[in-house]
């Protein structure tokens, strides 16, 4: 729902060298929030940067009526977001887009996430945990220091494997053999991925080979996040034809096999 919300910030803390974590009080928000959806957040009140930035929902705490974001400090927008203090209000547009589909028939899923894509898949791991779907996650990052979501996923009951550049374990071949092992050993029902083109291609290949359904959460640079500006487009392949879609409106989660990865 494209709605602007001004909601209280409960916490906003640095959790590792490059990552921050923010909790928002959603008790005044009525919309239902699904894993994979995102909010378009105003990071500063200044004339620069003034455009909103998209962030996935990292955790949805329905009992406490809060949501959490995990964000990487990248440029000016995310730098300014770190300056927001508890007690101040956050200006959020959303929840936007369509989230993940967790088929009731699934009882074993495999997630592969790279970098901040982990934040996007965490809410899915949480949902899987809640629904009793077993979940294995392969998390890929530059360094161990960036794998802070690993514990959160473990708390949700996921079995977590990590690969990093630091340990020279994040190469596609290494991830591929881990994925094959998990898919075969655990009889995985579906694949989910976010955060890397290389991992997305790998997921597409393995999904096709093993005949598995899957979903991918895409990140495209956004303007409006309301379907108006056509900044965030990507192509889907359907019945042999390419169709342009807006990630903010029809995504950010798409069927794995349809996305044309450039």
């Amino acid at each position: 729902m494209m709605k602007q919300h001004l909601l209280p910030i409960l916490t906003n803390v640095q959790v590792s060298e490059r990552y921050w974590h923010m909790t928002i009080d959603t008790s005044n928000m009525n919309e239902r929030i699904e894993p994979g959806q995102f909010f378009h957040i105003r990071c500063s009140d200044n004339a620069f940067p003034f455009l909103r930035r998209p962030f996935s929902i990292y955790r949805i705490n329905r009992e406490e009526d809060t949501i959490e974001f995990l964000y990487l400090v990248k440029g000016e927008g995310t730098k300014d977001l770190t300056k927001k203090k508890p007690g101040e209000t956050a200006d959020l547009l959303g929840p936007l887009g369509y989230g993940f589909k967790l088929d009731p028939g699934f009882d074993e899923i495999l997630l592969t996430a790279r970098g901040v894509g982990i934040a996007t898949l965490a809410a899915l791991a949480q949902e899987a945990g809640r629904k009793g779907v077993r979940c294995t996650a392969i998390l890929s990052a530059r360094s161990k220091n960036d794998l802070l979501a690993a514990e959160t996923l473990q708390d949700f009951g996921a079995e977590v494997h990590h690969v990093t550049e630091e340990e020279e374990t994040s190469g596609v071949e290494s991830v591929e053999s881990q994925m094959r092992d998990i898919i075969e050993r655990k009889d995985v029902n579906a694949l989910y991925t976010c955060g890397s083109r290389r991992l997305s291609r790998l997921n597409q290949r393995l999904a096709a080979e093993y005949g598995l359904p899957g979903e991918i959460a895409l990140e495209e640079q956004m303007g409006c996040a309301m379907g108006a500006c056509f900044a965030c487009v990507c192509d889907l392949e359907e019945e042999g034809k390419h169709r342009s879609v807006r990630v903010c409106l029809e995504g950010p989660v798409f069927p794995l096999e349809k996305v044309v990865i450039s």
Binding site: F48, L51, Q221, G223, A231, C232
Partner: peptide
């Protein structure tokens, strides 16, 4: 793509 970027008090599309 990318089709938009932000500049001081403006955006380029």
């Amino acid at each position: 793509t990318p089709r938009v970027c932000e500049t001081y008090a403006g955006m380029i599309n």
